[in-house]
Write a protein that binds this DNA or RNA. Structure first.
Lengths: 128, 128, 128, 128
DNA sequence: GTGGTCTAGACCACA
DNA sequence: GTGGTCTAGACCACC
């Protein structure tokens, strides 16, 4: 079952939160290939956000190839395919790690504390 | 020596790249307390960006208490001090970890791979 | 209702005047948590200043955790939270008190008169 | 005896610190009318600051009428004279109080705590 | 519509 | 020389 939560006050834009959470759900196997996603309207209603925002999130997922739209039927989890080369994936990972480490360092956290926070984050993800 | 590189056209804004790199340099001890930062104009010239952009980056560092400005003299690495409460520090760390993990997951990386990337990042910081 | 007035040509910069007045309004409870602030463009138009100046003021308020921004929606009064350590709060208070007292002393005011002016100031805040 | 201390890292410019402290010393009667001030060079040497900075401070004091220069002899404490009208003095006091209260409020301090900090500040002034 | 970033260029204050 | 403020105007991202 697909459980999505959005934090309106966050610095991360809403449509991005939706994209990330759906990607994570698909990546972790929580939703299987071929399964339908909630309709734009229903998800928008559930999260109390603008339908345009959900539509934009779905469009981004389609553009990335992790979701397919079937005219008139809805959106479905696509066959998993590698879009990025390994080098590109690593580059993107490093690009995400850098700012996070910079922030943590200036807050006075050590490498161990950072890794601990990540483990804790994963535990929370697993539970919910 | 403080070496800064910016990628124009990146998704992360230029001033943010500057902030992150200076934070990392200070946080990892690459630049010592009391040392002067390059002047706004000189760094702007070096990176071929507008001085205002550098000024914005430096202002952010001042707001975080990482550096101090002295009118007419320049910017200097500040004495390290505890500015934020534990709760606030944790909150900010989590806020930085969340999007990073989401990005990594959507790229198909595992928890172990993420932690590995962080360790690698720290090694790179130590060496330079 | 948030009423802001700026004095151009004053020694204290415009963006600072805006910051101070909004801080006072929030700190004294004149505007409630969650309420939206005027949009950057509208306030800029009202005060006849450049939008960038208002943006700078709002950014400072965000850095202090007093307000929060939501992309595409606006700025909102943030939930009150303890951001700074006790030491840092005291340090900042002293840093604000020092110059103010020096100015008052040089104008020939006594300690009692200064305290009186502060009480009067609070009364004015409460009334408006 | 005139004891001056400057804090280089402060947000208050050095020349302003010098002006404020000399004004306070004169205002409180610590230095009597007609007494000489230290020479620009000696004070600059003592405080380890640029002589231009001291010269600027003295010039500001002369402009305000609390100090007089006697060509070739030095600077002397002038006859005290009221430069500002009462309304003007009050206006300036309020102008100094406003930002300080705004800062304190956003730091979460109460009126009583602010007044306490001021009293403490005066005690510290008296002791030194 | 909202905020966020960047540029170009001006003027002032400080050391 | 240094930083600090402000303006004018552009382009982008988000809702």
């Amino acid at each position: 079952m697909l459980q999505i939560q959005v934090i309106t006050g966050s610095k991360v834009p809403i449509y991005r939160q939706v994209v990330d959470q759906i990607r994570s759900a698909i990546g972790s196997g929580a939703v299987a290939i071929g399964q339908p996603l909630p309709s734009v309207r229903s998800l928008a209603g559930e999260l109390v956000v603008n339908p345009n925002t959900i539509a934009k999130a779905y469009a981004a997922l389609v553009a990335d190839g992790v979701v397919e739209s079937q005219q008139g039927r809805g959106y479905f989890v696509a066959q998993r395919r590698e879009i990025y080369t390994k080098a590109e994936r690593t580059r993107r990972l490093d690009e995400a790690v850098g700012p996070m480490v910079a922030e943590a360092l200036s807050l006075g956290f050590s490498e161990q504390e950072i890794i601990g926070a990540i483990s804790k984050h994963f535990q929370k993800l697993g539970k919910s």
